[in-house]
Simulated assay, not measured.
Amino acid sequence: MTTQTPTRERTGAGGRRPMSFGAASLLVAEREITTQVRSKSFLISTAITLVIVLGGIIVSSLIGGGPQDDTRVAVVAGTADAVSSVEGIEAVPADDAAAAEELVRSGDVAAALVPDAESELGFTVVALTEAPADVLSALSVTPPVELLEETATNDGIRYLVSLAFGLVFMMSAIGSGSMIAQNTVQEKQTRIVEILLSAVPARALLAGKVLGNSVVAVGQTAAIGAVAALGLVLTGQNELLDLLSAPLVWFVVFFLVGFVLVAAIFAAGASLVSRQEDIGSVMMPAMMLVMIPYFVVVFLNDNPVAMTIASYVPFSAPVAMPVRLFLGEAAWWEPLLSLAVLVVTTLGVVAVAARIYTGSLLRTGPRVSVRAALGRD
C-alpha cells in the first residue's frame, strides 16, 4: 500500500505565498498614487495649474476680443443702400444731411454718409475730428482673393496649440519624473528599499512606480483638458473646441505611452545614485530629452519638414503628432505609424531601464555606472 505525500506550495518569508508580479506592481502603484494625491504640494500645484489654464483662456479671449459691436453710421434716404449689405456697419436713419451731422456731433454715431453729387461714389463720409478708419475700411472695395494653399488655422492659433500641448507634456513629464527620482533616491538613502525588496521584486517595484505615476499624470492631463474645454465653451470658442477634439484624444494616447518612456528613464537614472545631492547629475540627460523636443515643436511649428521629423522621434512625437493632426498636415496613417514607433521604443527602453534599476537599486555609496548596473563590469 502506497501513500502520497502532499506537495507543499512554495512560500515566501513568514510562510506566506509569494506575491505575483502583477499583484506586486499594482500594490506599489496604489502606494504611489495614494502618496501623490494626499500630498498638499501636489493638490495645490494642480489647483493652481487648472486656475491658470481656465484664466488664461478667458483672459486671452477678452484681450483678443469677442464679437465686436457694429459701428453706427448715420444715413439718409440717398445713402442707405451704400451700407445695407456691409458687415460691421449699423445704419442709423436720419431725416436729412443736417440731422445726420447732428448725430455725429452728439456722439450717437461714429460717422455719417451724406449725398455728394461731386463724389464718384455719390456720397461723402462725415466725421467729427478724424477719419473713421473702421468705416472707411468697411466701405472700401476689396477684390476677391483666391488662395492656392489655404491653411486651416492662422499663425497665432498654431503657436498657441503647439505651446499648450508642449507645456502640458513637458511639465507633467518633468514633474512626475522628478517625483519618481526623488522617491527612488530617498528609499535608497533611508534603506527602505531593502524592506520593499523583501516583499516585492525589483522589477515589480519599478513597474508599480511607473504605472502609479502614469495614472496620476494622465489624470492631471485629463483634468487640464476638461478645464480647457470648459474655458472654450464659456468664451464661445466652440469652433476651436471642435477642431481640438480628435487631436486631444490622440494627445492622451501618445502622452500615456510617452510618459511611460520618460518615467522609466527617470527611475533608472535615479537608481544609480544614493544621495539627494546627486540627483541633478543623473536627471539632466532625461530632462534634456523632454525639453529639447518641446522647444523644437514650439519654435519650429511652422516648419512642415521639422514637424514631420519630430512627429516620428519618440520623445517629441507625443506633442508633434497631435499638433500636426490639429493643423490637418498629417495623413490618416501617420499617427498609427508614429504610435507604433513610440511603443516599440518604449518597450526597448523599459527593458533596459529594468536591468539598470535591478542591478543598481541595492548598491549604495558612490554613483553606480550604467555599465556596472547592466552587469558588464
Rank of each mutant, 00 (worst) to 15 (best):
A229C: 10
S274A: 13
G225A: 13
V262C: 10
Q276W: 08
S274I: 06
L240W: 08
Q220T: 10
L197Q: 01
I180A: 02
V193F: 07
E239V: 11
Q189P: 03
A246P: 12
N238R: 14
F251Q: 06
G219D: 09
I279M: 11
Q182C: 00
V252L: 14
A204V: 08
V282M: 01
A229E: 12
F259A: 12
S245C: 13
L234T: 06
A217W: 06
A267S: 12
L243H: 13
P201Q: 10
Q186V: 09
G208Q: 01
V273L: 05
F255G: 06
L272E: 09
G269E: 08
L232Y: 03
L256S: 14
P247L: 09
V257W: 08
A222G: 12
L272Q: 11
N238W: 14
I195L: 07
S198M: 04
S198F: 00
A202W: 06
E239A: 14
L230I: 15
A202T: 06
I195H: 00
A270M: 12
G219V: 12
V257T: 09
I279P: 00
L248A: 11
I195Q: 00
V216F: 04
V249E: 07
Q220L: 12
V185Y: 03
M283N: 07
K209F: 07
L196T: 05
A199G: 12
N213H: 13
R203H: 14
G219L: 09
A199D: 04
A228L: 13
F266W: 11
D278M: 05
A267R: 04
V282S: 00
V262R: 02
A246R: 15
S281F: 08
A199K: 13
F259K: 13
L240G: 10
S214L: 11
S281N: 13
V249G: 14
A202K: 09
L232V: 04
L206K: 05
F259Q: 15
V282E: 00
V233R: 00
F266I: 01
L243Q: 14
A246Y: 15
V200P: 00
M284S: 15
L240V: 05
M283K: 04
L243M: 13
S214D: 07
V253D: 07
I224P: 08
T190L: 02
E239C: 05
S214K: 04
S245V: 15
E194M: 03
L230P: 05
E277T: 13
A217R: 08
S245A: 15
R203L: 14
L234I: 09
G212I: 03
F259D: 11
L234F: 05
L234H: 01
A207D: 03
L244K: 03
N213S: 14
L197G: 02
G280F: 05
G208E: 00
R275A: 11
E187G: 10
V185F: 07
E194K: 04
L240M: 10
F251P: 07
L256K: 08
L211C: 09
I265C: 11
S245L: 15
G208L: 02
R191T: 02
I265A: 13
M283E: 01
L197E: 01
L244P: 03
V262T: 14
L211M: 12
D242Y: 12
I279W: 06
V210I: 11
V253C: 11
Q276A: 15
L248C: 02
E194R: 00
V273E: 01
T184H: 02
A204R: 04
N238A: 14
G212P: 03
A226F: 14
L244Y: 06
R191A: 05
